[in-house]
């Protein structure tokens, strides 16, 4: 009896902790979205009534419109290039053995692990000396250097499932290594390519420190928000925030939809004490 009660309490504590944690993670996102529709200038309780005023205001703000357009351009460019480079890196790792492979893979994999403050500063210092400072293309190029790591990881995972015979079979049936790559490996990797496209776009769409350092006058949307946040309280922030949040969550969910990431496939995990 005593044992059952203890077990029950322990279970309750476990689920309680998990629930509290999810509330903790969800709260900031919900706050942004909910208060973007608040009529009050300063977001707090009590709720000042439903209003689309701030959403309309951001549509009318040319700086925000430009920043949004910049973000879309940089995000799309990053998505395409990071997916292409990530595929190349993943395929090289999968197909070939070569000297200095580990340094090569690390060169692609490591960038997200370097704090963005340091990386942003380093990129600014170096790229401004070779005349690339303050261009939208440079922001994109730097985002590609980071996002390729994620693209490579996703595509490499998919290549693990590619039967070792499939490419040789294509060569055997008259496909040159290049045609085999195009007609066999690429179609096989399609879900991973789509996933890495969306995830790279999400990574770029959220990145603000590097964009802030190297972008110069070209602000992306997160940089615009950062600049707004450092100024006075501005009710527009919630509205932009809601838009950005919805877009990045959508991108991540789309990416997930195509990776099929699962934490293990096992039968009913509850051993039932």
């Amino acid at each position: 009896m005593n044992r059952t009660l203890a077990t029950r309490l322990s279970r309750l504590a476990q689920y309680g902790l998990l629930g509290a944690l999810f509330v903790f993670l969800a709260t900031p996102m919900l706050v942004i979205v909910v208060f973007s529709f608040d009529a009050n200038r300063f977001p707090t309780i009590p709720w000042g009534g439903f209003s689309l005023e701030w959403h309309r205001a951001i549509l009318a703000d040319p700086m925000i419109r430009d920043a949004f357009l910049n973000s879309v351009l940089v995000g799309l460019g990053t998505a395409v290039l990071a997916t292409a480079l990530g595929f190349a890196a993943a395929y090289l790792d999968f197909r070939y053995r070569f000297r200095l492979k580990l340094p090569f893979i690390l060169l692609v994999a490591v960038p997200p692990a370097v704090p963005a403050t340091i990386l942003g500063m380093a990129m600014l210092a170096f790229l401004s000396r070779i005349g690339l400072f303050g261009r939208l293309e440079t922001v994109m190029a730097c985002h590609v250097a980071i996002a390729t790591s994620f693209a490579m990881a996703i595509i490499r995972l998919r290549l693990n499932d590619l039967s070792r015979d499939l490419e040789p079979a294509a060569w055997n049936l008259g496909a040159s290594p290049l045609s085999a790559l195009i007609h066999v490996v690429l179609p096989f990797c399609r879900p991973a390519l789509i996933a890495s496209f969306f995830l790279s776009a999400a990574v770029s769409f959220d990145e603000f420190l590097i964009a802030w350092f190297v972008g110069g006058v070209h602000e992306t949307l997160p940089v615009r928000i950062l600049n707004l946040l450092q100024g006075q309280v501005n009710p527009k922030i919630n509205a932009i925030g809601a838009v950005v949040l919805v877009i990045s969550v959508a991108l991540v969910l789309l990416a997930q939809r195509f990776t099929g990431v699962r934490a293990g496939r096992r039968p009913n995990p509850d051993p039932g004490e």
Binding site: I32, A202, D206, P222, I225, G241, V244, L245
Partner: peptide
């Protein structure tokens, strides 16, 4: 992957 900065705000 989504808007750390906004969540801190």
């Amino acid at each position: 992957f989504s808007s750390y900065m906004l969540r801190i705000y």
